[in-house]
Write a protein that binds this DNA or RNA. Structure first.
Lengths: 290, 290
DNA sequence: TTTCTAAATCGGTTTTATCGATTGATTTTA
DNA sequence: TAAAATCAATCGATAAAACCGATTTAGAAA
C-alpha cells in the first residue's frame, strides 16, 4: 500500500470511471487498472464492483476510502507544515468566495500580496453550495460566504461582520434619498434577482413568502456583474447585501427595514485539517481589514 | 512521498541510527540513507541533523513526524477495517495487562478463542508505565490496568469493576477468620511488597504516609509469582488487590478497612485510533464475563 | 447484428528501489 | 597518538515495479 495507490483509488472513486480518472492523474488507463488491482490484491477485497463495463464502489471500498483520504491528507498536511517553516516563502492559498463578498477578499489580498509576494492565490467564485462541495473535497482551504442555515460539525465557523439586505437601484431613481425601505414596498417594484442557486435569493424569497408578498421578479440571472449592468439602466431593481455593491459607482443601496434583514459573513474551513500558516495569516489580515 | 518512505523515516526517528533502523526494516543501510535523502529533497528540508556520524532530529523532522505517523496509522487503520469485514477470520489483538489482572484476561480469552479460533493474541505483561508507553507507540490495542492518577486526553477509559485492597497471607496464618483489617494493623506485620514500579505499591505507600504509619517492609520484589511463593511460606504478608490472588490456592485475602481502599480496573485505549472488530468483540466479552 | 465504449490483459520500456562494496569522517580503543 | 571500529554517504550494478501502447474482452448502444 502506497500513497500513490491511495491517490489513484480516491480519484477513481470520485469519477467512477477508470479512463477519466487515469487521464486526470496523467497516467494511462492500463496503469491505473493495474495499480487498483494490486491494491485490491493486497487488501484482499475488491474496492470496485465491475458490473459490465461500469464500475461502482463496493462497501469495502466505501469504508476504506475514508481512511485512504485521511492518510493522504495527513501526509499532505505534514508537507504543508514544512512549507510553512520556510516562512511564507512558498505555498498556495485556495479561497472560495461568493460574489457578494469579493471586495472583502480583494481588499485583504492587496495588503497581503505586498507583504508576502511569493504566496500564490487561487480565488474561486461560486455559490455557497458549490464552494462547500469543493471545501469538502479538499480543493479549497477556506470559503467566505454568508451564514448557512445548516451548520455542520466538521466545519469551523468564524464570523466576519454583518451586512443589511438592501434594495439596490440606479443612482438616478427616485428613492435615493430614503434611509430604509419596507419589504412590501420592494415587492411592488420591477425586480431582477440573482438566480435561485444564490443563497441571497433563497434568503429573500423566504422573507417574501413569510410576509405573503408576491414580488414582481421579471429577470433571474446567474451572473452578478451582468445583473448590475441591468440595474444601472434604472429599469429594474435588485436585492443584495449592502457589501455586494461597495465600490460600485452609479448604484445605491437602501437597507430593507424589518428584523432579520441582515446577513452575517462567515469564514468556513475544515475543522480537522492543518491550516497553513499562509492561510492563518491571510485570514487574520482579512479580519482586521474588514 | 510514499508510505514506505514515511515508515522508513519513523523507524529512523525512533532509533536515531540509520544502520540499526535499516536492519529493523530488513533493508540495507544504503537504501535507507537514499530513501531518507529522497524524502528530504522532496520536502525541501532536512529531517535529520548529521553531526559527525551521529544523527538527531531537526525541528522540521520532529514536526513532520507527527503527520507521518498519522498518515501511516490511517492507512493501516483502513487495512484493519477491511480485515474486520472478513468476519473475524483474521487479525491479531495485542493486549497489555498488569499482573494483578491476569485472571480477568485469561477468563475472557478462553471463551473468545473457542468462538473465534483464528484470531491471534499477543498478551504483554508489564507495569502500567511500560504498558502506557507501548500503547502510545501503537504496539498495543488496549491495556488493562488499575486507574491512573493522571488521565490523558488522547486516551479512552472504560471502567471494568472495583476491587478492594487486601492483606494477602498464607491460609495457615492466624488471621484467616477476619473479615477486614485496618491499615495500622497491617503496618505492624512483616511485609514483602511488589517493587516501587508497581502502581499497587505506589498506591499503598501513599496510604501509609497519609496515616503516618511506618510499615515493616522487609522485601521488595518485581515478580509477582515469586512474591506469592514467599507469602505461602507464612513468613511474610503482602498487600495486593483482591482480584490478584483469585484462583490462588494456599492464599487468603483480607480486605483492608477504610475508605479509598479500593481500586478500579480500567480498559485504556487510544481515542483516535480505529478499533478492530476483534478488539471490540473481545472487550465486550471481557466486560460481560467479569 | 454491428458499432461503440470501457476495463482488463499482454509484452516491452523506463524508472527506481535495492543491494554490496567502498569511501570519508568521527568516535572509541589500545 | 596511532590504530581500530563505527556509521552515514556514495557509487555502480541489478532486480523490481511502474508505466505505456496495443490488443483483447465484454457489456451497452445503435
Amino acid at each position: 500500500m502506497e500513497l500513490r495507490q491511495l491517490k489513484y483509488f480516491l480519484k477513481a472513486k470520485e469519477l467512477l470511471n477508470f479512463t477519466e480518472a487515469a487521464s486526470a492523474l496523467y497516467i494511462s488507463q492500463s496503469t491505473l487498472s493495474q495499480q487498483i488491482k494490486q491494491l485490491e490484491d493486497e487488501l484482499q477485497v475488491p474496492l470496485f464492483n465491475r458490473i459490465g463495463k461500469r464500475i461502482t464502489l463496493t462497501e469495502a471500498g466505501d469504508l476504506f476510502s475514508v481512511y485512504a483520504q485521511q492518510s493522504v491528507n495527513k501526509a499532505s498536511d505534514g508537507f504543508e507544515l514544512l512549507k510553512d517553516l520556510n516562512n511564507l516563502e512558498t505555498g498556495k492559498v485556495a479561497i472560495g468566495v461568493t460574489y457578494a463578498l469579493r471586495h472583502v477578499v480583494t481588499k485583504a489580498l492587496i495588503v497581503f500580496s505586498s507583504e508576502f509576494p511569493k504566496i500564490q492565490f487561487e480565488i474561486v467564485f461560486g455559490t455557497s453550495q458549490e464552494l462547500i462541495h469543493k471545501l469538502n473535497h479538499f480543493e479549497l482551504d477556506v470559503i467566505l460566504t454568508f451564514e448557512e442555515i445548516a451548520s455542520e460539525a466538521h466545519f469551523k465557523y468564524r464570523e466576519l461582520f454583518t451586512s443589511p439586505m438592501a434594495l439596490v437601484t440606479s443612482t438616478e431613481t427616485s428613492f435615493t434619498n430614503k434611509n430604509s425601505i419596507s419589504l412590501s414596498e420592494v415587492s411592488s417594484l420591477p425586480l431582477a434577482l440573482p438566480s435561485s442557486g444564490f443563497s441571497t435569493t433563497q434568503f429573500i424569497n423566504k422573507a417574501f413568502k413569510n410576509d405573503n408578498l408576491n414580488p414582481k421578479v421579471t429577470i433571474e440571472i446567474n451572473d452578478i456583474p451582468t445583473l448590475l449592468e441591468l440595474i444601472k439602466t434604472g429599469k429594474w431593481h435588485t436585492i443584495l447585501t449592502k457589501t455586494t455593491i461597495e465600490n460600485e459607482k452609479d448604484l445605491h443601496a437602501i437597507p430593507i427595514s424589518g428584523k432579520n434583514m441582515t446577513r452575517t459573513a462567515m469564514l468556513i474551513s475544515l475543522k480537522e485539517a492543518y491550516e497553513k500558516k499562509a492561510v492563518t495569516t491571510f485570514l487574520k489580515m482579512l479580519m482586521t481589514v474588514n
